[in-house]
Amino acid sequence: MSTYRWLPRAASLLVCLLFWQLAASHHWNLWLVTFANVPTPGAVVEAALGLVDSGKLAQHLSASLTRVFEGYLAAVLVGVGLGIAIGRSKWAEDVLLPPLEVIRPIPAVAWIPLAILMFPSSELSMVFITFTGALFPILLNTVHGVEGVDPRLIASARSLGAGRGAILLEVIVPGAAPSIITGLAIGMGTSWFCLVTAEMISGQFGIGYYTWESYTIQNYADIVVGMLLIGALGMGSSWLVKRLGTVFTPWHRPRGKA
C-alpha cells in the first residue's frame, strides 16, 4: 500500500463521524429515516465510560465470551469431524449430508423458540444457537477443502507407502487446512451474530442483552455502545482466528514471501 493512502481513508472515517455528529445534534429528519432519537458520538463515549465505571462491563463481556467460546468450540469439533468424513466417504456423504442440507437454510434466529424448549437452561440454548451459527460455514468449508485435495497427492503418498491413517493426517488435513481456516474465520463471525440475537431474547448478562435492555429502558447512547462492542468483538475474534491460521499454515503464503 502506498504511504499516502491512509490519508483519504482516515479522512473518510472522519467525514462519517462528522455526519453522525451533525445529524444527531440537529435531530435531522431525512424523510425515510430520522436521527431524532440517535445519540451523538460524544454521548456514546460518555455512556461507554459510564459502563466501564459501573463495573458491569466485565460481567457482560465474560458472559458473551463464554457462550461464544463454548458454542464455537463444539462447532469446530463437529464441523471439522463431519466435514472430513463427508469429504472422504461417499457413504458418509449419502447418510449425513441430506439432513444437514435441510437444516442449513434455517437461520439461527428461527431456532430460538425450539432451543428454549429443548434445552434445560437458557444458557445452554444460547450456546446451541451460537453452535448452529458457526457449524455450517465450518462444515461446508471443510468438505470443500477435503474434496479439493489433489488426487495426485494422495496417489503419490500411497506410492510412498502411506496407509489410510497417514493419508488422512499427512495429506488430507494439511491439504484442506487453508479452506478449513477460512471456514473457522467465517464461523467466528456468524457465531457472534447468532449469540447477540439469542441474548436479546433469553439472556441475563451479555453484550446482546445489554444492547436490548438499553433500548427497553431508553438508554439510547448505551445501544450504540453495545453495537460497537459487538462489532469490535466479532472483528477481533475473526482476526485472531486468521492470525492463528497463518501461524499453523506457514507454507500457505504468496510465492516468494516467507
Binding site: R152, S156, A157, S159, V171, W251
Partner: peptide, 20 residues
C-alpha cells in the same frame, strides 16, 4: 496389487506436499 514403495512414481507436474 495396489501402490507400493517398491514401485516409485514421478508425475509430470510435481506432487510435492506444499506443507512440508
Amino acid at each position: 496389487v495396489g501402490p507400493s514403495q517398491q514401485r516409485g512414481m514421478v508425475f509430470q507436474q510435481h506432487t510435492l506436499f506444499p506443507w512440508r
